[in-house]
């Protein structure tokens, strides 16, 4: 805890790890980690003022509504909650968001999306899970499709991905599938993360002043 940045940072940040450590372990630079702290602070003090991100705070930031239940947001929250404490601390926030950095390896994005869609955590994406995901998407959007259309979409996609035809998509099949269908991972890259120091310039001004 010797340097200026850790004094500025560490004691206040729940789940505190030096920004330098987080930067070296993730796709972020030290400046980007520091800029992310500004976003983290805003989210983690939005409802329950304890410096941790609770699910309602996550939903509020995503939907401008803290009560909006959503299967996808639940899944993302649970995957961000690496220590399984029911809340997201700063370390978890940075490590998880790093997967969404445009520079993060595609293998990380592929693995994260697989976990996201493996709803029951069996190590496979099953057809029932895919159906559930499609129905949840339709539910949150204004898109209305008949049951038979939903079945056709699910069957068609599933058979493309389940290349060995054993009724479940394993991680290798998923990897092959996203190679052929890169648009399926489109949401896994956030250009914002590359510009994060521009979005939260106040921290950078302080960092530069410090140097």
């Amino acid at each position: 805890m010797g340097c200026a940045s850790s004094r500025q940072f560490g004691a206040r940040a729940a789940g505190h790890v030096e920004p330098e450590v987080l930067a070296s372990d993730t796709s972020f630079t030290v400046n980007e980690v520091e800029a992310l702290y500004e976003l983290y602070k805003r989210m983690s003090f939005s409802i329950i003022k304890d410096g941790l991100i609770h699910k309602e705070e996550f939903q509020l930031a995503l939907f401008r509504n803290s009560k909006k239940a959503n299967l996808f947001a639940d899944r993302v929250f649970d995957l961000f909650d690496l220590k399984r404490t029911g809340v997201i601390d700063f370390e978890e926030f940075v490590r998880s968001l790093s997967v969404f950095h445009p520079k993060a390896p595609t293998s990380e994005k592929t693995a994260f999306a697989f976990k996201l869609y493996d709803l029951r955590g069996t190590g496979y994406i099953e057809k029932e899970e895919l159906r559930e995901l499609v129905l949840a998407l339709l539910d949150e959007s204004d898109l209305r499709l008949s049951d038979s259309t939903v079945e056709a979409i699910v069957d068609n996609t599933f058979s493309q991905a389940d290349s060995n035809g054993d009724g479940k998509i394993d991680p290798e099949e998923w990897e092959e599938f996203v190679k052929k269908n890169p648009a399926a991972l489109r949401n896994m890259s956030l250009p914002y993360l590359q510009d994060i120091t521009m979005a939260f310039p106040s921290f950078i001004t302080r960092s530069e002043a410090k140097d």
Binding site: F63, E140, N156, N187
Partner: peptide, 25 residues
Amino acid sequence: RPSVMNAFELISTSQGLNLGTLFEK
């Protein structure tokens, strides 16, 4: 034809999966 729609592409458009909104003020 709707049956050629890719389910995973469709899912990736979910609002709950589009974390870009976290960065919009």
